[in-house]
Nucleic acid binder design. Structure first.
Lengths: 163, 163
DNA sequence: GACTAATTGACAGCATACTGACATAATAGT
DNA sequence: ACTATTATGTCAGTATGCTGTCAATTAGTC
C-alpha cells in the first residue's frame, strides 16, 4: 500500500495501540478490584456517583450516565447491582417521582478509599521516568484526536438527519 | 486528595481519555462498515486473517487469535459468522485434523479493499495539522506505558504461581 | 388547563469479549 | 512405544456495553 500520507500509518498504529492499551487497562482495573466486592465497571460507576455531587444532594442514574458518557441503561444495570450489594442506596427523590436519588453508603465509601489507595500505589509504580509534561503532551494529542472524531460523528448525524 | 505526584493525575487523565477514545474508535469502525456485510469486530478479524500469512498457506483460528491478542473462542465465533456469510472459507488442514485452515474468499477480499479505501479517506480527514513526528511521540509513550503494564501483569501472574 | 416534548426507568434483545470445562488431536519426554 | 502435556475446537455461562420500545412523569407551549 503506497503511503502518500506518512501520518496515516502513524495514526493507524496509534489507534491499534490504543485498543491494546484499553484492554490492558481493563485488565488492571480487574486486578485492582480483586478481593473487593466490586468489579472494574462497578468501581467506575461508583466513583462517578461519589464524585458527582459538588452539591449536597446525591444524583440520579441518568445524571451519572451522562457524566460518564454511557447509555442510561448500562449505568442503571450496574447501579442496581451496587444497590443489591449495599454499596449504594436508592433514596426517594422529592423533586422527581421517577428518578430516585443514588447515595453511596459508608460501605461503598470505604471500598472507594481502599481502591484509591491501590490505584495510587499502582500508578506510582507505573509512571516510571516519564515527566508530567511528557504525559500531558500525549494526553493533549489524544484528547484532540478524540474530539475531532466526536465532531465528525456529530456532523455525520446531522447529515443523516438532513438526508 | 493531595497530589504528591503530579504525574498521577496526568496519567489518570490519560487513562480516562484512552477509554473514551477507545469507545469513539469502536463507533468509527461501526460507521465505516455501514452498508457492508461486516461489523467492526468482523472487519478486524478478517483483516487479521488476511494479513496473517506471509507464507502461502492460510492460518488457523487459534493462530489468528494469538496474533490479535484475543481469546480463541472470541475469534472462533466471529470467524464462524464470516464463514456463514461467505467472506471466509474453512479448508481441510492436512497438517492438523482439528484445526481447519481459514482462507479469505474473493468476496471477503473485495470488501477488505473497499474498507481500506474508506479507512484511508477517514484518516486523511482526521489527521488534521498534526505532524507524523508529533503522533509518533504520543504513540511511543502509550506503547511504553502499555508495555510496562503488560510486564506488571506478567510478573503478577508469576507471583501467583509461586504463591 | 390541555397538548406536546423530553426525560426516566424498566424490559427485552444483540454484539463483543471473557472464563471454565470437556473431548480430541498433536507433541514431548521418558 | 507409552504417557504426560499442550493445543484446539466446542459448549455453556458471565460481564459489559449497545439499541429499541413502552409507560409514566416532567417540562414546555399554546
Amino acid at each position: 500500500m503506497q503511503d502518500d500520507l506518512p501520518q496515516r500509518s502513524a495514526l493507524n498504529d496509534l489507534m491499534r495501540e490504543c485498543f491494546r492499551l484499553n484492554r490492558s487497562l481493563l485488565d488492571v482495573s480487574q486486578r485492582l478490584t480483586e478481593g473487593t466486592p466490586l468489579t472494574g465497571a462497578q468501581w467506575g460507576v461508583l466513583t462517578a456517583i461519589a464524585s458527582g455531587h459538588g452539591d449536597e444532594e446525591p444524583g440520579t442514574v441518568a445524571e451519572t450516565a451522562r457524566r460518564m458518557g454511557l447509555a442510561r441503561q448500562s449505568v442503571q444495570r450496574v447501579t442496581d447491582v451496587l444497590a443489591a450489594n449495599g454499596l449504594v442506596e436508592y433514596l426517594p427523590n422529592p423533586g422527581d417521582k421517577r428518578a430516585k436519588s443514588v447515595a453511596v453508603t459508608p460501605a461503598g465509601r470505604a471500598w472507594l478509599t481502599e481502591l484509591e489507595q491501590r490505584q495510587l500505589a499502582w500508578v506510582s509504580d507505573l509512571v516510571g521516568q516519564h515527566s508530567g509534561a511528557e504525559i500531558d503532551t500525549a494526553l493533549q494529542l489524544i484528547k484532540e484526536v478524540r474530539a475531532r472524531i466526536s465532531r465528525q460523528i456529530a456532523e455525520d448525524r446531522l447529515d443523516e438527519l438532513s438526508a
